[in-house]
Simulated assay, not measured.
Amino acid sequence: MTRVLVGLVYSACLLFWDVVATYTHVGALEPHAIAAQSYAQSRHNGRPPARTLNPAKTDSECRSRPLDLVFIIDSSRSVRPIEFEKVKIFLADMVDTLDVGAEGTRVAVVNYASTVKVEFLLKDHFNKLDLKKAISRIEPLAAGTMTGLAIKSAMTEAFTEVSGARPKARKISKVAIIVTDGRPQDNVEEVSAAARGSGIEIYAVGVDRADMNSLKQMASIPLEEHVFYVETYGVIEKLTSKFRETLCGVDPCAMGHDCQHICVNSNASFYCKCRTGFILNADKKTCSLKQVKVAVIEDPCKCEARVAFQKQTQAPLADVSRRIESLESLAGRG
């Protein structure tokens, strides 16, 4: 019995000294080695912190053509709170890529479930920070999926001049981006056709259980450029680059032009203008100094009465001249 106890004590002492040596070794590691080890463990064992919407964060923007842009987002019961946050981050990322401003792109958001709520209008926010703060405050409505009603509300409430949409005469593109993960509980085909007929270009983004046929009924033609699908809300942010390619045009004036004086952007194209005092030549590129027209004042005495008198006297004078010539001819013969 005594021999067994001695063996157990001996084993315990060996284990103790092994643990002490191990921690002494770790303590002797350089600080950067400990940090690297901790980083490797965190990558292996832990998830990275979830991304949250930071209104102050900005990414590089593209030179987008001016738009009246309305997001129509599904916040029905099927969209869990963490997934709805992903949608809001997607909206904020989209705002970052756009040339936002009163004369640039204006943004509105329509939130829907069984009911529809216009979160803010095109006329409400003209800078990115205010827009993203407004997006961060949006709360899910959590009920049914009345997508058709949401599209109609966007058309009659958000895309109006009273709400901040530009007049048709200005030819500013009107774009709606719908994000949904379900099947509409109302009719979307007719109301979408009416919206497209009024000049609204519709992009349909389906997530997870979204009904593809409904997406096609809502979207503009060609469908391959206006219908998108992602498997989860976790990857919806990847669509930002897709929309960046679609909505962000290259600034033709910045890329190089042959205007002599001023280059003016016009959506995806440009045209040339001249500075004050010059006119655009026929080549639509070069400019010439504007000629000042000098008004020539005719002889004030050359009035209609004088002209009429001259016409009346021309014939008799010609007859007198002929008679004088005849008399001179006869005199010469004599």
Rank of each mutant, 00 (worst) to 15 (best):
F84C: 10
K285A: 09
S153G: 06
S60K: 05
D181A: 04
K88P: 08
A142P: 01
A33T: 12
G182N: 04
V294C: 13
T24N: 07
E304V: 06
V235H: 11
R209H: 13
L98F: 01
F120E: 07
A36Y: 10
V70K: 04
K128R: 14
K117W: 00
K284L: 13
D96R: 04
D74T: 09
P55I: 13
S220Q: 02
D211G: 07
P81T: 09
V175K: 08
R166M: 15
L280S: 15
T105D: 03
Q41M: 06
T276E: 14
A35P: 07
T276F: 05
L223G: 05
D258A: 12
C263K: 03
L29S: 08
A165C: 13
Q41T: 07
A142E: 15
L67C: 02
E83K: 07
T97R: 12
R106G: 01
C287A: 14
C259I: 14
F126T: 05
E119A: 12
P184R: 01
E245V: 12
S214G: 11
E103M: 09
K168S: 01
S214W: 05
E304A: 10
D181H: 07
R322P: 00
I138M: 01
P184Q: 09
G197F: 06
A102Y: 06
Y10E: 04
V307R: 10
E245F: 11
T240L: 07
A219G: 04
K242T: 14
S266F: 08
D59A: 14
Y203K: 06
V296H: 11
L129M: 08
Y39K: 09
T232A: 11
E83R: 07
C259D: 10
H44D: 14
A28Q: 15
S163P: 01
Q291L: 11
A92W: 03
